[in-house]
Amino acid sequence: MVDTMREGWTELDGWTETEQAVAKEAFERAYGRAVERLVATVRDRTTALNSAESVWQLHDYLSIERHTMEGRFDFRLDGILFVFASLVKDELLTIKELTGLDAEKLAKIGAMSRF
C-alpha cells in the first residue's frame, strides 16, 4: 500500500482533519479486505495446481493483482473520491463506512460507484 498523504493538509484543500481521518481509516479497511480476498483466491487456486502451466498461470494472476492493487491503493486526497467509488462498486467498502465526509463528497462517491 502506497501512502502519499501529505502532512498539514488544511480545510483550504477541501478536506477537514476529521474527513482526512475518516478517509484514511476507510482506505485502510478496504485495503485489508482486498488483501483478504486475494489470499482466499490464491488459496483456492493453489488447490488446483497440477502442472507447470497452472503454476505459471497463478504467477501471472499474482503479477496482475499486484500491479492492480499497487495502482488502486495509492492514498492521495486529490483522487480519493474515484478510488472510494471503485471500492464501493467492488464491495470492498460501503458508503456508510465513509460517514464523516461531507454530503457532497458522499453523493459524488455514490454516483460514481453506480457506473
Rank of each mutant, 00 (worst) to 15 (best):
1 M>K: 04
1 M>I: 08
3 D>S: 12
6 R>T: 04
6 R>F: 06
7 E>P: 05
7 E>C: 00
9 W>G: 00
10 T>M: 03
12 L>V: 02
13 D>M: 03
15 W>N: 02
15 W>E: 00
18 T>M: 03
18 T>L: 08
18 T>Q: 15
19 E>T: 02
20 Q>L: 11
21 A>D: 09
22 V>Y: 04
23 A>E: 10
25 E>F: 07
27 F>M: 12
29 R>N: 15
36 E>M: 11
37 R>E: 11
38 L>I: 01
38 L>N: 04
39 V>I: 15
39 V>C: 01
40 A>M: 08
44 D>I: 01
44 D>C: 06
51 S>Y: 14
56 W>R: 14
56 W>E: 01
57 Q>Y: 02
57 Q>F: 10
61 Y>L: 04
61 Y>H: 15
62 L>T: 03
64 I>M: 00
68 T>A: 12
68 T>S: 10
70 E>Y: 11
73 F>Y: 13
74 D>T: 10
77 L>E: 11
78 D>E: 15
81 L>P: 10
82 F>G: 14
83 V>W: 05
84 F>Q: 11
85 A>E: 06
85 A>L: 05
87 L>T: 09
89 K>M: 07
91 E>R: 15
95 I>E: 05
96 K>N: 05
97 E>K: 02
101 L>T: 10
101 L>F: 04
104 E>G: 03
106 L>Q: 02
108 K>G: 00
109 I>H: 05
113 S>R: 11
114 R>L: 04
114 R>G: 02
